[in-house]
């Protein structure tokens, strides 16, 4: 009886995904998107959903994960350390960002959180083009917190660094300038059982994206989690290839 209680306690503790610490690197942090409500909602969604998705996984293959737009590296780092959520599968994370400062900070965040260097690989690559898949293989998981904020044309920033920072959140006039082409092509990045976790805001009209963009491109989409943050309603959606997923 006593032993049973102890074991279940350990089990519950093991399921908690640690929130990585972002190190202070002089001259770097202010040039990179700082983790905010959207980043934390994405972490919560992954913590909840990965356990469910992998509890019956019979495979012990390495789990190939891609984060598009890694920013500070908070999500990539959490995933690189998430093996306890993955029922024995070992994560191998590729972290992409169009901002070289974000790539450098992601490497530092990995180090600061004792990520095995073999589990986290950073590449300077524009998310707009990565959905044509520059990799030799496809992924089990693709994670993306896209630039989703609607910004009127002409609201440009003055120098290169703040321009790169703006690219991390500027979603163009309707907020969907990045999201629609990415979602239209992301199937090339996913293997047959693969899933995309995409953060969206009410501004992006998620239901429209599922019906008019994901479905015609062979993907199903379901909401995993939602939360109100100030004026916006944030949600995380899971997309999978049609007819092949178990859900």
């Amino acid at each position: 009886m006593f032993a049973f209680v102890t074991i279940s306690k350990i089990f519950v503790m093991d399921l908690i995904m640690e929130t990585p610490v972002i190190p202070n690197v002089t001259g770097l942090n202010e040039l990179v998107y700082e983790p905010a409500e959207d980043s934390f909602l994405l972490l919560d969604a992954l913590e909840q959903d990965l356990v469910k998705s992998f509890e019956e996984s019979g495979s012990d293959d390495v789990l190939n994960i891609l984060e598009v737009g890694c920013g500070s590296g908070i999500v990539s780092t959490a995933l690189a350390k998430s093996e306890k959520l993955l029922n024995g599968r070992l994560p191998c994370v590729f972290a992409l960002d169009v901002n070289p400062n974000a790539c450098l900070l992601t490497n530092k965040t990995g180090e600061a959180n004792q990520v095995a260097t073999s589990s986290l690989h950073t590449i300077l690559l524009d998310g707009r083009f990565c959905s044509r898949n520059p990799f030799r293989f496809q992924f089990d998981l693709v994670i993306c917190n896209p630039p989703y904020v609607p910004i009127l044309a002409g609201e440009n920033t003055e120098d290169e660094n703040s321009g790169l920072l703006q690219q991390s959140w500027d979603g163009g006039p309707d907020g969907n300038t990045f999201i629609i082409p990415f979602l239209s092509n992301v199937r090339h990045l996913l293997n047959n059982n693969g899933s995309l976790y995409l953060l969206l805001s009410s501004w992006n009209n998620p239901e429209m994206l599922v019906q008019d963009v994901a479905n015609p491109n062979g993907l199903t989409g379901v909401q995993v989690i939602k939360r109100t943050a100030g004026r916006e309603r944030l949600s995380v959606w899971k997309f999978q290839k049609k007819g092949l997923s178990s859900e």
């Binding site: 590729f94 073999s118 690989h121 990565c130 044509r132 030799r136």
Partner: peptide, 14 residues
């Protein structure tokens, strides 16, 4: 860049 990354990357998006 680790040689692992080199082993996985292509230029086929061009």
């Amino acid at each position: 860049m680790k040689l692992f990354t080199h082993n996985m990357l292509t230029s086929k998006m061009i």
